[in-house]
Design a protein around this nucleic acid. Structure first.
Lengths: 350, 350
DNA sequence: AATAAAAATGCAAACGTTTTCATTTTGAAA
DNA sequence: TTTCAAAATGAAAACGTTTGCATTTTTATT
């Protein structure tokens, strides 16, 4: 009566059902999926047919229990709901998808405690590797990862002597590039709108790059022009409006494009023409910056390439245990001169 | 000599190691995590201490193999790299995170074949539930899901008599609201910039809503003013520029805010003042639309609420097998009148 | 046709938990 | 103190695969 013992509950067929229907052993069915070349063609066909008849979907969890791979990779970002990382996330995901892997993603909102909790949560799910944004991470999280030999790659930022393998761009250089550009255009009265640099090495590096250049050119910036600003178009707009009502630098360098968008809108709101009354520069160049009016001058960070390279690095790392060369991937940066910055002429400035 | 048999490879401790160190059986350690109230306090403390000493992280895969729950939920969206869904994705993720669950996400780019492949891939990882955007899905995918009794919820769009449980807003109504507004402002010369409606029920519903209202008001729109436009600021801008160079409606209704942004920038590029020369309306109201200059008139879709409600529905469904009431969650829609639309005066229009 | 080597397949023991059932311990009532 | 029910814990059998090893089948060689 109850000969349906091997049938898994819920009517979903298991490898045993497929094996029986194809007239082979479960081991052979397993091999059909994991090393098909090992089977001879007729066997392969019988199994394929049986699996398709039954609507079999293999259970990777059970497999992962035995070998070591779950086929899932983690990606932890500060925020998903923000144009900054969106392009990278999608590229990372697509690349994994192409290799029949899946992505577990979570956001921590620049909270390192939370990041650690997320790392633990992902580890409980047996990820084959993980990508973390930047270099600032809790030691506990890093320990958990290294104890388990889970491949880690730090993305977005790049440093030659980083302790983690990293795939990203030199954010200090990005800051330098944009600052050089602004200075070269003759600006001396410059305001800086940057996000909080706590737990944010990217912002820190960019800021350092900008300040280095300014220092080289003997330009000093009053503290009142170094303004902390969240990653938010609306808030940036508000802050910029407040600033511009009482103070009028000739250029504003923003820590990222989101802030720069806010500044652009602030100018429009105030009736200031960019770049005639004010030059605005960002860092990042994500989709949209190019199409503002005028187009935003910024430094392009190849987000898509970073996402792809991060996925590739993790894949290689998990399969071979070795880093692909080059060990660290330094992504190229390029200054995008667009309409939002202009050479300083006599009629503008403070 | 080889007494370290129970020690799992890679130096990561297992439940057996924790049990030994705490002087209890593995079963008790398991209970510590799954039903702690069952243990008496001293036992609990000993286990907690042992787990912490060893740096134990439990393996949910092994657990999921036995009971039915992996603790991961899937979310499949058309695109991640697009402001449209970003807010919802983050809310969904955060809600799951709060319940100690994780999110597997993937994008299919409006390709239903790919969506089906992704569903299979997620099913191989034993997700406890899945959220799909809209109602247009491959039958194969739906069959796989129902055969395995995996809870599914359709999000973003809402219909009373939908076959799937759904959490979203009535997109037809959204179209009606924005069209009513534009018509009420006296516009008759209207252009429509909408995304492709193939495999996109949201766009279809919105379009139908708009067209219904126009019909009621006996407004006919020339086919040349019904323009297909991708979800892309740059492309929308380009298309809008081409249109406005040769034709000048008094208002443009866009299928979503992304397109509307593009249209706004096109106007700035062409030196047209919004809303004096042209009224622009969107649908969606995602972060950013409010801060454009002028602010974009649009219909607000509560993306965050949708994400939260979708996660909650899935959680309830997977735990109890029952839908939370109300069975279908219809999210409220609201017209946001901002600066980008104005009453038609004599000096504007075609 | 006989034999050896190679290729294909099967058997059964993992993988690290959870859970049922049985057993022991505890606490309360007599 | 006993006695009994309730609470806490332990033993061992799953869960659905993968893989090392053993066995069978095929192919190549003589």
């Amino acid at each position: 009566m109850n000969q349906r013992r091997t049938r898994s509950r819920k009517g979903a067929p298991g490898i045993v059902d497929v094996a029986r229907r194809a007239g082979v052993s479960p081991a052979t069915v397993s091999r059909f999926y994991n090393s098909p070349d090992m089977l001879k063609v007729p066997t392969r066909n019988r199994i394929k047919q049986a699996a398709s008849d039954l609507g079999y979907i293999r259970d990777r969890m059970a497999g992962a229990l035995h070998n070591r791979f779950s086929g899932s990779f983690g990606l932890i970002v500060p925020t998903i709901d923000n144009a900054i990382f969106a392009e990278m996330i999608e590229a990372f995901s697509l690349r994994l998808q192409m290799q029949d892997r899946t992505m577990l993603i979570a956001a921590h909102g620049y909270d390192l405690e939370l990041e650690t909790a997320i790392v633990r949560s992902l580890l409980e799910r047996r990820i084959d590797g993980i990508a973390l944004v930047g270099f600032d991470h809790g030691q506990v999280a890093l320990n958990m990862l290294s104890q388990r030999d889970v491949p880690v790659v730090s993305i977005w930022n790049y440093e030659d002597n980083a302790t983690l393998p990293c795939v990203g761009a030199d954010n200090r250089l990005a800051g330098q590039l944009i600052a050089e550009h602004v200075v070269e255009y003759g600006h001396r009265e410059i305001a800086l709108l940057f996000p909080d640099t706590i737990n944010n090495d990217r912002a820190r590096s960019r800021m350092a790059g900008v300040e280095g250049v300014l220092k080289n050119h003997a330009i000093t910036i009053n503290e009142s022009r170094k303004i902390n600003c969240p990653y938010d178009v609306g808030k940036a707009k508000k802050i910029a409006i407040e600033l511009l009502k009482i103070d009028r630098p000739s250029a504003i360098i923003c820590g990222n494009d989101v802030i720069a968008h806010g500044v652009m809108f602030a100018c429009q709101y105030l009736g200031l023409t960019v770049p005639r009354h004010l030059s605005v520069a960002g860092i990042g160049d994500f989709g949209g910056s190019e199409y503002l009016e005028p187009g935003l001058t910024t430094v392009r960070l190849p987000a898509k390439r970073i996402g792809i390279a991060a996925a590739d690095t993790l894949l290689t790392l998990s399969e071979t245990g070795m880093l692909p060369n080059p060990t660290n991937h330094a992504m190229p940066l390029s200054l995008k001169k667009r309409g939002s910055t202009a050479k300083l002429s006599e009629d503008s400035g403070a």
